[in-house]
Amino acid sequence: MEHSYIDLDEETLFIVSQTFKALGDPTRIRILHLLAEKECSVGEIVEHLSLGQSTVSHQLRFLKNLRLVKSRRAGTSIYYSPEDEHVLKILEKTIQHATHD
């Protein structure tokens, strides 16, 4: 099957590079990996990953701006979950690659 090459526009290139930038940070990888398992509040992420609240909040803002996580409010708490299954699949495959014997 023959494919014709289509050049990527600037917006697509920017989004792809920002997504890889997001996945290039160990803290963001840990947060995404946790959220792939279950929806969590900031406090739960802080507790599970032994990180500071300001660090978690900063990283969630970064991930939310890239539409990699989404949030929902329940009373006074905000819960975070993955927004993009495509990126989670990339992360999962990369983890499998890294842990493969």
Score class of each variant (00 low, 15 high):
68 L>V: 14
54 S>C: 14
31 I>L: 03
18 Q>Y: 11
76 T>S: 10
8 L>M: 09
86 H>M: 13
78 I>H: 07
17 S>T: 13
57 S>P: 08
42 V>S: 01
54 S>P: 15
77 S>M: 12
12 T>N: 09
63 L>G: 02
70 K>W: 02
62 F>G: 00
68 L>Q: 02
70 K>R: 13
55 T>L: 04
65 N>G: 04
83 E>P: 01
23 L>I: 14
35 L>H: 03
58 H>G: 04
49 L>P: 02
78 I>G: 00
8 L>E: 12
69 V>R: 00
82 P>G: 03
67 R>A: 09
64 K>P: 00
22 A>Q: 02
29 I>S: 01
85 E>N: 14
33 H>I: 06
49 L>W: 05
73 R>F: 03
90 I>D: 03
58 H>L: 00
80 Y>L: 06
71 S>H: 05
21 K>S: 14
88 L>T: 02
34 L>Q: 03
45 I>S: 00
16 V>C: 10
20 F>D: 12
81 S>Q: 13
59 Q>A: 13
32 L>G: 01
18 Q>W: 13
48 H>D: 14
30 R>S: 12
56 V>K: 00
66 L>G: 02
37 E>M: 08
79 Y>E: 02
64 K>G: 01
77 S>Q: 07
9 D>F: 11
26 P>K: 11
91 L>F: 15
26 P>I: 15
22 A>M: 04
51 L>W: 08
49 L>A: 03
56 V>E: 00
68 L>G: 01
78 I>R: 04
40 C>F: 11
93 K>D: 06
83 E>C: 04
19 T>D: 02
45 I>P: 00
94 T>S: 14
9 D>Q: 15
63 L>W: 05
62 F>H: 03
19 T>F: 07
84 D>V: 15
87 V>L: 01
21 K>W: 11
28 R>S: 04
46 V>E: 01
92 E>F: 14
26 P>F: 15
24 G>E: 08
84 D>P: 05
20 F>K: 14
96 Q>F: 12
88 L>F: 07
45 I>F: 07
48 H>Q: 12
76 T>Q: 12
12 T>Y: 09
38 K>T: 08
33 H>K: 12
58 H>M: 03
21 K>D: 09
70 K>M: 06
75 G>F: 06
91 L>N: 12
30 R>G: 05
16 V>H: 05
16 V>M: 08
24 G>P: 13
86 H>W: 07
58 H>W: 01
30 R>M: 13
46 V>T: 08
13 L>M: 08
64 K>I: 00
31 I>F: 03
51 L>S: 04
74 A>G: 15
16 V>G: 05
91 L>W: 13
69 V>Q: 00
44 E>Y: 15
48 H>C: 07
66 L>W: 04
43 G>S: 11
22 A>S: 13
81 S>M: 08
59 Q>K: 10
18 Q>H: 05
51 L>Q: 04
70 K>C: 04
